[in-house]
Amino acid sequence: MSKSSPRRFAGKSTGTVTVIEARVHRSSARRAKLAFILTAVIVGVLAAVVAASYWHPIVALIVGALIGVPCGAAAWLLVRIWPVLQRLWWWATEIVLAVLLLTAWVQLANHTSTVVMLLVVALVVGVPAAIPPVRRQVKAWAWCLIVRHRLRVCFAQFIIANQSGSLPLILWARPTPVGERVWVYLRPGLSAKDLEGRLDKIAVTCHASTVLIERASETNAAYLRFDIKRREVLDARVNSPLVDQIDPTAPVSASPLTVPTALDLPDVDVPTITLPAQGKPAAKKPTNSANGSTPAADTSSAPDDDVSDWI
């Protein structure tokens, strides 16, 4: 902001305040004030208009003001505590889980003896820990919780979205065989293209190997799908389901092949280095003996589909 700006000229500037928090704080205060005025005026006017059909207009104005001011105050409060509400929402799953666990713990402690309590805890913790598939599931879902916070860190720390600093909506997450898949709804100021250049940084922040972004909706560019990869599945061998379709005891039914015997370089003379003429089973059979004069290409192929071959 230059020195000749109107704000500076009006003497409202506090001088050398450059701390971001102060700016954010100020913008929050300004927004709260604006919300108060707007809500109070709109609700007040509406209430006054409605009241005017029952009472005298002056009484109606007073009633409008009485209704408008508390509503404006509520709006002001909402805007001021919005960051707190946001954080409560971000941690809602963890808060609910913690409350449930603590309640269960307290109930257990109140209603059972220590031995029973320890036994229950040992079962609840030990059984999932001892059964690998359950353990993997629990770990995968725990990562889903973690990764949503890590993505939020990415957006807040190094993906600057817009002037008001609104973060994308991080929707649900679910585990995949290679990691997690998170759905995100972008706010104005970001696009999938912006994010594609920062995938490596996102991967680092999410403690992952790689991150991929795909559009989750054909019609809405803001709706994205983040695939966070921690494990590699393409190294594994993939078996074909065809093997299960067949009966391995089916009779072998290959048509007879004429097998060439000239399998080494000295067995083949210079003039015969031509690619063999090919019948159904491509084969070349030298007719001469091993000291190898001219072997002739044998083009006689096996008889086609002789029924006796099948039996």
Partner: peptide
């Protein structure tokens, strides 16, 4: 596998 499938298919 390939030869098993081929034999079965021929069958």
């Amino acid at each position: 596998d390939i030869y098993n499938i081929a034999d079965y298919a021929a069958w």
